[in-house]
């Protein structure tokens, strides 16, 4: 379809100039014949080709140079007969990168498109906002430095004299263990789990003895130490005999209930008076 369109256009141009050419010189009889032929072909159907057509381009170029005001069309390039005119309709096809896949999903899905895209775009925008705010950024930096200092103070005894400020190897594990204990871990990771009972007793006895020694030495030298942390007795659940009552105290063949026991049995008192 495209070449046909192009051809018709070309003929129109020629037929326009044709009228002017009739008044021109007669010596170009061969090209005139070609022109008539083309005019005939444009209105009816193509004639069988019997002779080589003289180049029409020349004439048209001459004409256009004579009458420039007629049109600014300056003819086809030479050998236009062989060239096929192509018309591109989709020259700038929109690239897929223009819209995101999300947009395609929201718009072309079966659901009515919502404003879900805006939400995602605002979520993306939040990140740079937090970084450009200087007050919060300095706060964060200060906190970081503070934490590094705290750690250095706590773990400096582990540091190698030769190495830099970072731990390495076994020391790193030890530092990590210290941090865990700091955060509330009950026992050290490095505490031995299984050992003979006598050995464990020996270790605890030695630890107690060392502690006593330290306290005594401090007392003699007049140094005040931290208070001994009392180990609380775990008496939350009292052992009762089988078949014994689960509340109160059985004493002298009699179950004695304390005030607390009675209160627990009765439960919270409700103050609900309905006067009528």
């Amino acid at each position: 379809m495209a070449p046909a369109l192009g051809k018709r256009k070309r003929r129109d141009q020629i037929s326009d100039t044709e009228i002017n050419r009739e008044s021109a010189a007669d010596d170009r009889s061969v090209s005139l014949q070609a022109l008539f032929r083309q005019h005939f072909e444009s209105t009816f159907e193509p004639l069988p080709c019997t002779f080589a057509r003289p180049p029409l381009v020349h004439n048209i170029d001459d004409k256009s140079s004579d009458e420039e005001l007629e049109s600014d069309w300056d003819g086809f390039p030479e050998l236009y007969e062989e060239q096929v005119e192509t018309v591109h309709y989709a020259t700038s096809a929109p690239s897929k990168a223009d819209v995101s896949k999300d947009e395609f999903k929201t718009f072309m899905s079966t659901r009515p498109p919502s404003s879900a895209i805006e939400i995602s775009s605002t979520a993306k925008r939040k990140q740079p906002e937090s970084t450009d705010n200087d007050e919060s950024s300095t706060d964060a930096a200060n906190l970081k430095k503070d934490l590094a200092l705290q750690r250095l103070l706590k773990e400096s005894h582990l540091l190698d004299p030769q190495s830099t400020l970072s731990h390495s190897g076994q020391n790193r594990h030890k530092a990590l263990d210290l941090r865990l204990q700091d955060m509330g871990s009950k026992t050290s990771v490095f505490a031995q789990q299984k050992m003979p009972f006598a050995q464990r007793k020996g270790i605890t006895a030695k630890a107690i003895e060392r502690e006593k020694l330290r306290r005594r030495g401090a007392q003699e030298n007049g140094i005040i130490l931290e208070k001994v942390a009392k180990s609380r007795k775990d008496d939350s659940t009292r052992k009762r005999g089988i078949g014994a009552p689960s509340v109160g105290k059985f004493q002298g063949g009699m179950l004695k209930l304390s005030k607390k026991d009675v209160a627990e049995i009765e439960g919270p008192k409700k103050i609900a008076r309905h006067k009528r």
Binding site: F107, T110, R111, P112, P113, S114
Partner: peptide, 22 residues
């Protein structure tokens, strides 16, 4: 209908489970 009419129902609080499948 899907892209210009149905989204307006959301303004009336009618937005869930609406689909138009072509």
């Amino acid at each position: 209908v899907r892209t210009a009419i149905l989204p307006l129902y959301a303004q009336f609080g009618i937005s869930n489970n609406i689909e138009l499948r072509i």
